[in-house]
Nucleic acid binder design. Structure first.
Lengths: 395, 395
DNA sequence: TAATTGTTAGACAACTTGCCAATCAGGAGG
DNA sequence: CCTCCTGATTGGCAAGTTGTCTAACAATTA
C-alpha cells in the first residue's frame, strides 16, 4: 500500500521507526530480540540503538544473565520521553458525580496522576477549564510542558473531526465551533477529541474483552443515555460527521401510525429503565439504582431483565444485521450493574431476535473505562507521533 | 504504520513498486512526471523503468512533442501483462434472465470479452461451470491461461473469507464448503468471492456516484431481495463472517406483540413490492414491472412511491443511525427503475425519519453493476499482486 | 571449552549530484 | 522563405555519498 519511494535516508528512518515501534509495544528487548523482529543485522541494530539512546528515546534497563557469553543489554523505551494526558468530561447530572476526570501517563502507559473535580461549565469556559486541569496534572506529576505531547478529551457527543467541532453535546460550552483548535493552541500540544463511548471501546480493545476480537460493537448503557461504538480491526468507525453509533435516535418501526414516533432512547434510555422498574415494582430513584436493586433481588430480577433484554435486543439486532460483528460488548454503568444476569438475558433475547449469531459479553473493565480509553488513545497518538517524527526528521 | 525494515534491496523494490503503482492508476507518464511523483532522481527513474520494461510490465507508448528539447518518452503499463476475469452468478428466477454473466479485462481495465449464458445449477456443478465459463472467456479474447491471474466471482450471498465458504446462497451448489479453494485449484488462478451487492458498491466507488465520497452505504433493491453494502473510505465492510449488510433479515420492532415478527424483507422485498403495487392498483407480474409501471403513471406514482419510500426509510434510518454515512446510494434494478421519483420520495421520507442528514443519490451505472464491480475488484487484486510481487521477488 | 555478545573493517548495493551530448522549438538575420 | 543560433529539455555517464551486510575478532560467562 505505501507507495513510498526514497533513498538510503528513508531506509534508515524506516529501520529506526521499526525498532522503536517494537520497543514501544511494551517490550524489554535485547539486541538479539530486535534482530529477530526486524531481520536486520547486528551492526545495524547497534547503530539504530545508539541513535535512539542518544535521542533519549530508549535506554538500557538491565542485563540478561544466565546464559553463556556477556550479559546482553536489555533495552526499553524511556518512560519520560513523552507523556499523554486524558480528560473525561461529562454532564453533572443529578448524581453529583465529578464532572471532570483527568489523568496523565508516561510513554509506557503508567498512570502518573489523576484528578477528579466538579466543574460547573455553566460558569466556566471550557478552554480555561481544560488548561487548568492539564496544568494541575502536570504539576502533580512534575511533568514539564514540553514533554506533554498529546491531550485526549472525551465527551458525550459526536466529534466531527473534519470541522473540528463537537455536535450533540450536553455539557455547556463544548459545542462552540472553533473550540478545539483554541484548546490545542492554549495547551501547546496536540489535542484529540472523541466520543466517550468510542474511548470506552478503545479501553475495551486494549484491556478488556475486545482484546483478541477482530472487531466488536460496544453498546454503552449509562444513566443519561446510550451509545454505540464500532471497532473494526482496532480502528473505530466514526462516520461522516462523527455521528456513527448515535443509535439513541434510531427510529423504530411502528406498523400502525397511531403510535407516536418511538426511538431506541425511548426503549432503553434512562427514563425507560425508570418506567420499566416501576412496572416491576422495583424501587430506585435512578436507573442505576433500579438495575442494582433488580440484580440484588432474584425474584423479580428475571422478569425485569428479560423485558430489558428484549428491548436491548431490538437495537442490537439492527446493529448486528448491518455490521455482523463477531462480538458484542455490553458496557457502561447500567450494563455493568446488570452483570451476568443481564448478559444471559440479552444472549437469549438475541438468539430469538437476530438472524446472525454474535457472541455477547459484558465489559471487564472496573475502572473508569472512558478515562482509560482516553489515556490509551492519547498514548497511541504520542507513539505514532514519535515514530512519524523519526521517520520524517531524517528523511 | 508499516513497521518494515530492510536493506537496499527493499529500497529498490519499494521504488519500483511506487513507480508501477503510479503507472497503474491510469497514467501515461514521462520520466519527468515520475520524478515529480516519486521524488526520485533521474538515473534512478531510468533504472526503474529499464527494469519494468525488461519485465514487460510497462512500455513506451508515445513521445511527447511540442516542447523544446528531445521528445520525452511516454510510458504506460502494458495492457497484456495480466488479465482479470469476473463472473457474476445469480439465481435464475422467473424472469429467464441469464444466470451467469462473465467478462474479462486487461490490466488497463479494457473489457476484452463478455459472455451471458443460462446455466442451470441444479444440473451443473459450480466448479465445472466456472472453469468452462473462464475457458470460454480466455478463448474469445485469446488470452493464455498463465496471464490470467485473478478471477472474481460475485454471488448473492455472504462470503466468509476466513472459512472460504459462501453462506446464505440461493444458487444451488454454491454453499458447499471447500468449493472456493477447489475452483481456485481448477482454474490455477487466484479466486476472489464476494457478495454481489458489495461488488456493485465497488463499481459505484470507481465509476458511479461514490467516486468522490469518503464513504457511502449502498442499498440494493432487486427483484429477489435487498442488500446493503458499506464502503468506508474505499474499503468494504464485510463483518465477521461476511454477513454485514444482510439487512433483509433485520427484525423490525413491533410495539404490540400481537403482530407477527416482521423484518425488512417483508417491507421492501419483492413480495412486499408486489403487494404494495396491488394496493395501489398498479399492474405488473414482477416487482420490476410494477415499479416501471408506477414510474410511467404519474397519477398513482406519487402515492406509491411515497409509501415505498417510507418503508425504505425505515431501513435506512437504522443504517444511518449506526453508520452515519455521508452518502446513501440507491441501486439495483428496482431502485434504478424508480429513478428520480423514488429518489425525491426517499429523500423526503428520510428527512422525516432519520436524525442525521445524509445525501441520497441514485446509481449512475447503466451497465451490469455487479459485473463491472467484479471486474474492478479483480483488477485491483491483480494490480496489488503485481506490486507485491515486485516488492517481494527482489526483497 | 564452547557459546554468546558487541565492535570493527571491508565490501556491496542503491541512490544522488554534477556534467555532458543530443535533440527540438522558436526567433533573428540573410 | 530558408538558415542558423539560442535556450530549454531529455537522457546517459561517472564520481561520490549513504547505509547495510558479511566476516573476523575481542571479550565475557556457564
Amino acid at each position: 500500500m505505501p507507495r513510498l519511494a526514497g533513498s538510503s535516508k528513508l531506509l534508515r528512518a524506516m529501520n529506526e521507526s521499526a525498532a522503536l515501534a517494537h520497543l514501544l509495544e511494551p517490550g524489554m528487548l535485547t539486541r538479539a530480540d530486535l534482530r529477530k523482529l526486524t531481520a536486520l543485522s547486528t551492526p545495524t541494530i547497534s547503530e539504530v540503538l545508539r541513535r535512539l539512546t542518544d535521542a533519549h528515546l530508549v535506554s538500557v534497563v538491565g542485563y540478561n544473565s544466565g546464559r553463556p557469553g556477556p550479559n546482553a543489554e536489555i533495552y526499553a523505551v524511556n518512560p519520560d520521553a513523552a507523556y499523554a494526558a486524558a480528560v473525561s468530561v461529562r454532564d453533572i447530572g443529578a448524581s453529583g458525580a465529578p464532572s471532570v476526570v483527568a489523568a496523565l501517563c508516561d510513554l509506557t502507559g503508567a498512570e502518573r496522576a489523576r484528578i477528579e473535580s466538579r466543574i460547573d461549565f455553566l460558569h466556566t469556559d471550557p478552554k480555561t477549564a481544560m488548561v487548568d486541569v492539564v496544568a494541575e496534572l502536570r504539576e502533580r506529576s512534575g511533568v514539564s510542558a514540553t514533554r506533554l505531547s498529546h491531550v485526549q478529551i472525551g465527551v458525550a457527543g459526536s466529534y466531527d473531526g473534519r470541522a473540528q467541532t463537537i455536535h450533540h453535546v450536553d455539557v455547556p460550552g463544548f459545542g462552540r465551533p472553533g473550540l478545539v483548535p483554541e484548546i490545542a493552541d492554549a495547551l501547546g500540544t496536540n489535542v484529540g477529541v472523541d466520543n466517550d463511548v468510542n474511548l470506552a471501546a478503545v479501553a475495551e480493545r486494549r484491556r478488556g474483552v475486545g482484546r483478541d476480537a477482530d472487531g466488536f460493537a460496544l453498546l454503552w448503557l449509562s444513566q443519561e443515555g446510550l451509545g454505540l461504538a464500532i471497532d473494526i480491526g482496532g480502528t473505530l468507525l466514526r462516520g461522516a460527521r462523527g455521528g456513527a453509533g448515535e443509535i439513541g435516535y434510531m427510529p423504530l418501526y411502528a406498523p400502525d401510525s397511531t403510535h407516536r414516533k418511538v426511538d431506541l432512547q425511548d426503549l432503553i434510555g434512562g427514563e425507560a429503565i425508570l418506567a420499566l422498574g416501576r412496572d416491576h415494582g422495583i424501587a430506585g430513584r435512578t436507573p442505576l439504582e433500579i438495575v442494582l436493586a433488580a440484580a440484588g433481588d432474584p425474584e423479580t430480577a428475571g422478569e425485569f431483565f428479560t423485558h430489558l433484554a428484549d428491548r436491548i435486543a431490538v437495537g442490537l439486532a439492527a446493529v448486528i444485521a448491518v455490521l455482523d460483528p463477531s462480538l458484542v460488548v455490553l458496557a457502561g454503568p447500567v450494563a455493568q450493574a446488570g452483570g451476568q444476569i443481564l448478559l444471559t438475558a440479552v444472549t437469549g433475547a438475541l438468539r430469538r431476535a437476530a438472524p446472525l449469531e454474535s457472541t455477547v459479553a459484558v465489559t471487564t473493565i472496573d475502572d473508569d473505562a472512558v478515562l482509560l480509553g482516553a489515556l490509551d488513545a492519547g498514548l497511541t497518538a504520542v507513539r505514532e507521533a514519535l515514530i512519524a517524527a523519526i521517520r520524517d526528521n531524517q528523511a
